[in-house]
């Protein structure tokens, strides 16, 4: 195993830098995944059948709270990576913990939002619009849920094994994922919610 100590820990082996590049490529694929969802959303947005329109069911307050939570969590995971790079295990773990907490908060509000939609009669089966709305939000939400457990596992590993080449690498890749979900959310926020309520 070739080790290059001039690089940050997460890049230090060949395997590590392969993984980071591989994950970037995966994010390229994720861009297309969400682009397809957006393309479908924009196609179906006015096809509401007998169901409600976006303007009728969207509420700004929970959406805004979700946005702030996710933006902040993206910031804290960035700080976590910074702390990791200066070798501060405790701070890294703390920032990871806060990130996950914010992520859980986001999910809580999203579930609340979904319950609200069902209450006002916008279920998966109501119309093409509600189906693509819930699918797009749900795909993002599932990504966050997946990320929550992934991040949790990494946190446990840092706790048990310390900041090693492996855990540093995993943490960095996780941070890429988390930032990416934030970027996706920004587009959801702008082009699903705000555009819908404009």
């Amino acid at each position: 195993m070739k080790v290059d100590n001039s690089l940050p820990l997460e890049y230090s082996t060949e395997e590590n830098s392969l993984k980071i590049l591989g994950f970037w490529i995966f994010l390229g694929a994720e861009i297309m995944l969400f682009a397809t969802l957006f393309a479908s959303y924009f196609t179906l947005v006015n096809r509401t059948g007998n169901g409600p329109t976006g303007a009728e069911i969207f509420e700004i307050t929970p959406v805004l709270i979700e946005t702030i939570l996710l933006l902040t969590s993206s910031f804290t995971i960035g700080l976590g990576i910074h702390a990791m790079r200066i070798g501060n295990k405790k701070a890294t773990m703390a920032f990871f913990f806060i990130t996950l907490l914010l992520g859980a908060g986001f999910l809580g509000f999203e579930i609340f939002e979904f319950v609200h939609y069902v209450h006002v009669g916008a279920t998966l089966q109501t119309s093409a619009f509600t189906a693509i709305l819930l699918t797009t939000l749900g795909t993002h939400g599932l990504h966050v849920t997946f990320g929550f457990f992934w991040g949790l596992f990494i946190l446990l590993q840092i706790k048990k094994r310390g900041l090693t080449r492996e855990t540093a690498n995993k943490s960095f890749i996780f941070s890429l994922y988390w930032h990416f979900l934030d970027v996706v959310w920004i587009f959801i926020f702008s082009f699903i919610y705000l555009k819908g309520m404009m």
């Binding site: 995944l33 397809t36 969802l37 479908s40 196609t43 179906l44 096809r47 509401t48 059948g49 007998n50 169901g51 998966l124 089966q125 109501t126 119309s127 093409a128 619009f129 189906a131 693509i132 699918t135």
Partner: peptide, 24 residues
């Protein structure tokens, strides 16, 4: 994504590709 939407239409009764309730 397309297959997931098709699966949902078939198994969960969504209306992505149907000809009712806005499906296309």
């Amino acid at each position: 994504v397309a297959l997931a939407m098709g699966t949902m239409d078939r198994l969960f009764g969504t209306n992505f590709f149907t000809t009712v309730n806005g499906g296309m």
